[in-house]
Design a protein around this nucleic acid. Structure first.
Length: 424
RNA sequence: GGAGAGGUGGCCGAGUGGUCGAAGGCGCUCGCUUGGAAAGCGAGUGUGCCCCACAAGGGUACCGGGGGUUCGAAUCCCUUCCUCUCCGCCA
């Protein structure tokens, strides 16, 4: 959520940024925002004054009562009525304006960083770098959805029976490969200084608002209405919300966490022929890294996270590229996002396996996540997160890229975790 | 799920209608003291918003959340969430 103070200070920058991400008529929204804020201030002033009057009179009544001057007290009581009424009306008006202001703020996305290129769709994302060699597969190489059937390691039909589409069952070496990857990712993150957490995978509304899934992405989350809980779409939500309503000291920074969780996404309306097999699921596993950073250090942290994520892909010997997302493809809450895509040899396409973002103060403002600076002043922190990594597409790429006529060769780094070298 | 108790500042813990943002203690910060430290002594120590120069100062709100009674509520009432104890159930 944008800060009104920031809008007042940097209106032009903000307008420019919002245009870059194709936010419609930003001038209109910002003008209304500033107007509402003016209204809010003036109403609050009047409201506070009315309350100050009644408080003053109430004190007098108290003193008079203590002195036994009942009649005088009664006389003042009558006087309070008009202030009270005025205060009540002003209070209602103030609340209405505050609500309107908040609703408006919920509709305005984060302002992209200056590095973010203009553009409308994923076609306009910029390839920053490409790494590794694209493997040449043997004749008769198959896409992963055929391989998983051949080796009987992931079963979509069974998932259909138990739950529905997009909830596969991992079996045998498929399950073990998955578990190996999770452990590998957690161990690597630990070595890189991320403290492991295992958060709840259901969250309440306050948490959903805190990181920005609500109200923007309400329809994308599974909602347990009986208890008003949501299944998490990513571990970012519970992990970042650890720090909701927290004021950190300078020497406590940065906070770095890693967590493995299943993730749930309804993916309403985004199904189609191009998302076969493991490419898109309703439930999938992901290891997520999160950082809470000092504003001056968040961009260095973003680089560090990107480098770290790439180190995983290198160790897994997967060819990948790094994309800088354009304004139009940027998530609602993000100021800048890099996507890591792995090349899936049998499908001949790039699959997104990680997304690393700096949210600057956008989430922190909603979370009320702050720190005390050198001058003991409270300031908003920066939040960042990245997938390290999302499992299904990594599995798909490993299966496809490492296939041979004899079976699928497990990447070296995973062998100690899997305790087998081949899926055959 | 049933019965009861309770939710107060970083922590512990007073406060059951009036000047309470809230006693006291602990912790923390600064100063004095010391060769240094401890102890001791003194001062300070929440957050949001508004006025204002993001200063000083002032106003207002906040004692789990929401609503109500009252001139006035941490204190009374309603509601909701959470915690604890006992019972039930159970991985």
């Amino acid at each position: 959520m944008l800060q009104v103070a920031q809008v007042l200070k940097d209106k032009e920058t903000i307008l420019h940024g919002l245009k870059k991400r194709n936010f419609k008529e930003p001038e209109k929204a910002i003008d209304i925002l500033l107007e509402l804020d003016e209204k809010r201030k003036s109403l609050q002033q009047k409201h506070d004054n009315a309350l100050a009057e009644t408080n003053q009179l109430s004190k007098q009544i108290g003193q008079l009562m203590a002195q036994g001057k009942k009649e005088e007290a009664e006389a003042i009581k009558v006087k309070t009525a008009e202030y009270k009424n005025e205060g009540k009306i002003l209070g209602e008006e103030l609340k209405a304006v505050e609500d309107e202001l908040r609703e408006l703020l919920y509709t305005i996305p984060n302002v992209p960083n200056t590095k973010v290129p203009a553009g409308n769709t994923d076609q306009d994302n910029v390839v920053e770098s490409t790494h590794g060699e694209i493997p040449r597969l043997h004749a008769g190489a198959k896409p992963h959805w055929e391989l998983i059937e051949q080796y009987d390691i992931i079963d979509f039909e069974l998932g259909n029976k138990i739950t529905g589409a997009g909830f596969p069952v991992y079996k045998g070496k498929g399950a073990k490969l998955q578990r190996a990857l999770i452990n590998f990712f957690l161990d690597e993150a630990e070595k890189a200084g991320y403290g492991e957490v295992q958060p709840p995978i259901m969250i309440n509304q306050a948490s959903g608002y805190g990181t920005g899934q609500l109200p923007d992405k309400e329809g994308q989350m599974y909602h347990a209405t009986e208890d008003d809980y949501y299944l998490i779409p990513t571990a970012e939500v519970p992990i970042t919300n650890i720090y909701r309503d927290v004021i950190l000291q300078l020497d406590e920074l940065p906070k770095k966490h890693v967590g493995y969780t299943p993730c749930f996404r309804r993916e309403a309306g985004s199904w189609g022929a191009h998302v076969r097999g493991l490419n898109r699921l309703h439930q999938f596993d992901k290891v997520e890294i999160v950082q809470i950073q000092h504003p001056d250090k968040s961009y260095a942290a973003l680089d560090e996270m990107s480098t770290y994520i790439q180190s995983l892909l290198k160790k897994l010997e997967l060819p990948y590229r790094v994309l800088l997302l354009c304004g139009g493809d940027l998530g609602f809450t993000s100021a800048i996002t890099y996507d890591m895509e792995v090349f899936s040899a049998a499908q001949q396409k790039w699959l997104e396996v990680s997304s690393v973002s700096n949210f600057e103060t956008f989430q922190a403002n909603r979370l009320k996540l702050r720190f005390k600076d050198e001058n003991k002043k409270t300031q908003l922190l920066h939040t960042l997160n990245g997938s390290a990594l999302a499992l299904p597409r990594i599995v798909a790429a490993i299966l496809e890229n490492n296939q041979t006529p004899e079976g699928i060769k497990v990447p070296k780094v995973l062998v100690p975790y899997c305790r087998f070298e081949w899926i055959n």
